[in-house]
Write a protein that binds this DNA or RNA. Structure first.
Length: 859
RNA sequence: GCCCGCUUGGCGGAAUCGGUAGACGCAACGGACUUAAAAUCCGUCGCCAUCGGCGUGCCGGUUCGAGUCCGGCAGCGGGCACCA
């Protein structure tokens, strides 16, 4: 058998697709159904990795399938090209971020093209193209006009040596990752987008996203965190203080369990106390030096400072509560002040135990004894009935919340309130390699937006990167401009936008990349929403939430008609690989390792010296663990189709996939085997005979296969669909061409024609080769998706397992669709039944049509 | 710490309407072909055992019947707002 050689055939078919301009999306045409497939665009890091291969292969299956189904498909590609790594490269290697980025794009574009993706490359752009980010500035100004953009102070990680703001990930054990200097917290005046204005919409509209994974919707809902509770004021015990201390709580029902009132270190009252009390000032300063990230705040030891102030309980004026400053209270959430109920909140309990505050349970767990119930080291956060709670006694939690709120309102102390966990989106970045924020600071006019006619605000050509601080700010001339309003000397804003802004609307730009407006509405109206969006689960909250927000804001600015960008979402898993380490602990690349297997044990040795190597768990491919595999080398050895097939076949798409060379070899065997099967089919025509038994078997299998693969693609179970394709190849080999009757050859010809089209989304080059071999018309990429006949996918007879008391014992054959009563009679008449159930009494026979029989017996 | 997932043979996984657990692939083992190797082909392949029994992370529940539903626990992973 001649070997199928992907090295020759694959480039040939890619050229054929290019020449046919096969993947250019058609013009917007309301008469033609559209399908917009989009994978999250890549950051141009320099090299394609296997995660990219998986992501884009997944999307390509959908795009090719929908095209075969007759849809006008839009499947574009772009580059998320601004961001930190380019500036890091500039710092480390003294290169220009722009040149570095575009070089990377050029290299990665070549690698992506090699993958044979059905992409409309005519729409490609990078977010660092001035044609793109200039238009981003245009809609930013629209949001500015609508009051959705504002400035406020916020805390950042500041590296005093590098003179720069650090991302949370750049702070390691409280020190800057590059300088090693102790990181300070600084207050900077920063730009924010008012995403909280849309908090209700963003929550409510999640319900309409029925083609999103449930877990992503849940994560977003929790992130936005809409909660209903109460906002009310405590009166100070000191009659000289006329003002109250306003708190927010989601648990007004537990008010009688209050042990203290806590305020954030940034709370105005904390500042007031600190001004008069050096110990308090020191404590507030300690809190300020703490972590910025929520994870660290939450896991840090709970610390507090008793201000000495006291407030009165709103329902019991005789009860006084101390006011503490606490490090776990966030100024950004609610009012920055809480009341602590240790018995029913774990953080409050930890705090109370540490500082010796009383723990008074007020919610009695079901079945607990009110006189004996105590809270130990674990707060009771479950359901129960109120007790120790005056007028709330006996109520359930929800009723008690309502009653408490009603009393607070009646007393004029507070009111029911809805609060969101979601905070406004801080978009300022003190970095040069990003989209400049198009405003000017004028000493006399204040903040003045750049007029749209003056856009884009482009980067200067000569930015001196590689030094500490923001290169845009440091540039000698760029920021000095005339005020657009008064004409006086003014300065440009030198902050740039968070790169999440860049990725929050690119899908809309793809609808028409030539548009002078940010988005051409007519094109966007046709193409949006994205029918299928595909990307990593790590974007479940931030990117997807920001894109949803910007879509709504752009809709309200008149650019878009849709209010949700992504009708369907699929989140794929990571690509992992085994890790290898030498005895000394150093990581070793897979290429330097030989695996020896004997029976069930596997051992690894270093290729060069034979020294033993420890095989570790499969982990996400990363340079630091040296467990990466270069896609280019894989393509070279096994071919692109084998690589695509393996990443699609090995695991369900939403789960992690473990890369293995043995696995891709298996995929290569399939590619070869398919090539051989098509090779062996003699040219027709052959005299068909529908009654031939071999032909009938093959025909039914072909229809079953078509249904299985179609359903697998529709439901993203590509691995199962591919398993059916493997099975079918085995069947073709059983019904081989050599020595076959004309009837079988005729049926084989039909089967091969279907098979070539079914493999096309997964292994498109191989499909073309096969299609050409059997004389298919034109290119396989233009061939319609095969149909199947439902009747032919069903067998006339089925095998029914017979269970006794739920345990499978034997089986019977019955006509498909036989009525349960008839099957029951068949079973009871079966001599096997009498033999097996001798001496037992039949209590009941359960028959599930075409599925199973269960005989319930006793005795 | 909080939120969200996941857990099935030696391995990736299949069974997604509660109805035969282990499809398909990988690895391994045995055989054919070969001077030999590779490739290819054929066969075996959850565990224990003679009939048979036990098995889907662990404990419990619902059901004629549970990998699937419910409660609890454990382990692993993702996110936590300036990585993208």
């Amino acid at each position: 058998m001649t070997r199928y050689n992907p090295k020759d055939t694959e480039p040939k078919w890619r050229r054929a697709w290019d020449e046919a301009d096969a993947f250019r999306a058609g013009p917007p045409d309301p008469a033609r159904p559209k399908y917009y497939v989009l994978e999250m665009f890549p950051y141009p890091s320099g090299r394609l990795h296997m995660g990219h291969v998986r992501n884009y292969a997944l999307g390509d299956v959908i795009a090719r399938y929908k095209r075969a189904r007759g849809f006008n498909v839009l499947h574009p590609m772009g580059w998320d090209a601004f961001g930190l790594p380019a500036e890091n490269a500039a710092m480390e290697r003294g290169v220009d971020p722009k040149a570095w980025t575009y070089d990377n794009i050029a290299r990665m574009r070549g690698e992506l093209k090699e993958l044979g993706l059905s992409i409309d490359w005519s729409r490609e752009f990078a977010t660092c193209d001035v044609e793109y980010y200039g238009r981003q500035q245009a809609w930013f100004l629209d949001l500015f006009e609508k009051g959705l953009v504002y400035r406020k102070e916020s805390l950042v990680n500041w590296d005093p040596v590098d003179q720069t703001v650090l991302a949370n990930e750049q702070v390691i054990d409280g020190r800057g990752w590059r300088s090693g200097a102790v990181v300070e917290k600084r207050r900077l005046s920063q730009w924010f987008l008012r995403i909280t204005d849309y908090a209700d919409d963003l929550t409510d509209d999640l319900k309409s996203l029925d083609r999103w994974p449930e877990k992503v919707r849940t994560m977003q809902e929790n992130w936005i965190g809409r909660s209903r509770g109460a906002r009310f004021s405590f009166r100070f015990s000191d009659p000289a203080r006329a003002d109250g201390l306003e708190v927010y709580t989601t648990r007004p029902d537990t008010l009688f369990g209050a042990a203290f009132v806590g305020i954030a270190a940034d709370h105005p009252l904390a500042a007031e106390v600190a001004a008069a009390n050096p110990a308090a000032a020191a404590f507030v300063e300690t809190c300020r030096q703490g972590a910025v990230s929520e994870a660290e705040i939450e896991t840090a030891e709970k610390l507090g400072f008793d201000t000495g102030l006291k407030v009165r309980h709103p329902f019991d004026p005789d009860l006084e509560l101390p006011v503490w400053i606490a490090n776990f209270i966030l100024m950004d959430y609610g009012t920055g002040a809480i009341f602590g109920c240790p018995a029913h909140d774990q953080r409050d309990l930890d705090f109370a135990r540490k500082y010796g505050l009383p723990v008074r349970p007020v919610v009695l767990p079901p079945g607990a004894d009110p006189s004996a119930f105590e809270v130990g080291e674990e707060a009771w956060t479950g359901a129960g009935a109120l007790f120790n709670s005056g007028f709330l006694d006996g109520l359930g939690i929800e009723d008690a919340k309502a009653a408490a709120i009603a009393r607070l309102e009646a007393d004029g102390a507070g009111e029911g309130a809805t609060v969101f966990r979601l905070r406004d989106w801080g978009v300022s970045r003190q970095r040069a390699w990003g989209c400049p924020i198009p405003v000017v600071h004028c000493p006399s006019c204040g903040v003045v937006p750049v007029p749209k006619a003056s856009l884009p605000v482009a980067h200067p050509a000569d930015i001196a990167f590689g030094k500490a601080g923001n290169a845009l700010d440091r540039h000698p001339t760029w920021k000095h401009v005339a005020c657009p309003s008064c004409g006086g000397a003014a300065q440009r804003e030198t902050d740039t936008l968070d790169t999440f802004v860049d990725s929050s609307w690119y899908f809309a730009r793809f609808a028409d990349v030539e548009s002078q407006e940010p988005v051409r509405k007519s094109a966007a109206d046709y193409w949006l929403p994205v029918d299928q969006y595909i990307g990593g689960i790590e974007h479940a909250v931030l990117h997807l939430l920001y894109a949803r927000f910007v879509t709504k804001a752009l809709a309200d600015s008149g650019y878009l008609s849709v209010r949700e960008p992504f009708a369907g979402l699929f989140t794929q898993g990571m690509v992992t690989h085994e890790t290898y380490r030498r005895q000394g602990g150093e990581w070793v690349e897979p290429g330097d390792v030989v695996i020896e297997a004997e029976g069930r044990s596997r051992r690894a040795r270093l290729l060069s010296t034979g020294e033993p190597v420890v095989i570790g768990d499969a982990e996400k491919m990363s340079k630091s663990k040296k467990n990466t595999v270069s896609p280019g080398e894989i393509f070279e050895v096994y071919g692109v189709d084998a690589a695509r097939l393996f990443v699609l076949s090995d695991s369900p798409p939403e789960r992690d996939a473990q890369w293995s060379n043995a696995g891709v070899e298996g995929a290569g065997r399939f590619v070869n085997g398919v090539g051989g099967e098509f090779e062996s089919q003699p040219a027709g025509p052959h005299a068909a005979d529908p009654g031939d038994p071999g032909a009938t078997t093959l025909r039914r299998a072909t229809h079953r296969l078509t249904r299985a693969v179609t359903e697998a693609i529709e439901t993203f179970r590509f691995n199962s669909g591919i398993a059916r394709l493997y099975e079918f190849l085995n069947l073709l080999r059983e019904h081989k061409a050599e020595g076959a009757s004309p009837a079988l050859l005729a049926e084989r010809a039909e089967a091969l024609s279907v098979f070539a089209r079914l493999i096309a989304p997964f292994t498109p080059h191989l499909a073309e080769e096969c299609w050409a071999r059997i004389g298919g018309e034109g290119l396989a990429v233009f061939a319609p998706w095969p149909d199947y006949d439902e009747a032919l996918t069903r067998d006339a007879e089925v095998t029914l397992p017979v269970q006794v008391n739920g345990k499978r014992r034997w089986e019977i054959r019955a006509p498909a669709g036989a009525e349960p009563a008839d099957v029951e009679k068949m079973v009871l008449d079966d001599p096997e039944t009498a033999r097996r159930l001798e001496g037992l009494t039949i209590r009941k026979v359960i028959v599930v049509k075409d599925r199973i029989v269960n005989i319930v017996v006793a005795g």
